[in-house]
């Protein structure tokens, strides 16, 4: 069964979004799909959480947005990582792996 975004750890959604635009700009729908497929259909981010998060990250200066043409030749808003966003992603990733390592050590030792 898919995990909903309100079951994610706080801050995880930001990391997921930043990670999915690491290799190039993407629009909101593509980001949602990427998280879905890359998590092996485990994480389902809903629109009601995704879009506010995208705008929040933009305000924080980690994402930049511009309008471009999408696959179906429609106007779409593309989000890309800013240099500050890239730094943030690196830090978040390290923090997360430390957290995961610690968690797994504790959980497996019992």
């Amino acid at each position: 069964m898919a995990l909903r975004d309100n079951e994610l750890l706080p801050g995880t959604l930001d990391l997921l979004i930043l990670q999915s635009v690491e290799n190039g700009p993407a629009h909101g729908y593509a980001i949602m799909e990427a998280i879905w497929s890359r998590s092996g259909e485990l994480f389902r981010v809903e629109e009601g959480a995704l879009y506010p998060a995208l705008h929040r990250l933009q305000l924080k200066g980690w994402l930049a947005a511009e309008w471009g043409a999408s696959e179906a030749n429609r106007k779409a808003k593309y989000y890309r990582l800013t240099p500050a966003g890239r730094r943030q992603l690196r830090e978040e990733r390290q923090r997360w792996s430390r957290l995961a390592l610690g968690m797994s050590r504790i959980l497996e030792s019992s």
Binding site: Y29, E47, Y51, A72, K75, K77
Partner: peptide, 16 residues
Amino acid sequence: ADLEAELAHHLAMKER
């Protein structure tokens, strides 16, 4: 307007 357009695009993609 931007927000409207962004959501319209999302909706279109989803319908497709």
